[in-house]
């Protein structure tokens, strides 16, 4: 390993930025893949993989992925929830496929434009 320069410090910081954002939980967008038994049966694992592939291919630094349980609407699985830092309410998308994921990335994640045709509703459910 040759001696490190100040520019190298910057480079290391840039390379690891995504890892770090993940660990700190700071992000522009958070995508939750619903992975209850119903979701997994309907193909949520493929959805999770394609979400991760999109992030990887687009080299997005500030989009994090997480999974959660069944959202209760089992017939519309696989579902994802997209939360943007600059939008007040989360959006639920239903009947996901890898192609639809691509579209959501193209418009919602990158351009802040909701993909209305895939969306179920705005907002989260009320909790007691």
């Amino acid at each position: 390993m040759p001696k490190i320069t100040i520019a190298d410090l910057e480079k290391i910081r840039e390379d690891t930025k995504r890892t770090l954002n993940f660990r700190l939980g700071t992000c522009k967008a958070k995508i939750t893949v619903h992975m209850g038994t119903c979701g997994i049966a309907a193909g949520a694992r493929d959805i999770l993989s394609s979400v991760m592939k999109e992030i990887e291919e687009r080299k997005l630094m500030d989009v994090i992925v997480t999974n959660s349980g069944c959202a209760g609407l089992c017939s519309k699985e696989p579902m994802i929830t997209v939360e943007m830092a600059n939008e007040p309410a989360p959006v639920k998308y239903i009947d996901m496929t890898p192609a639809k994921i691509k579209k959501i990335f193209d418009s919602h994640i990158l351009k802040n434009e909701l993909v209305k045709e895939y969306a179920l509703a705005l907002g989260s459910e009320k909790t007691a």
Binding site: T19, R23, M52, I55, I64, T66
Partner: peptide, 9 residues
């Protein structure tokens, strides 16, 4: 490949 989750032990 990037990871989706980190388990910080």
């Amino acid at each position: 490949m990037a990871y989706r989750t980190y388990l910080m032990v």
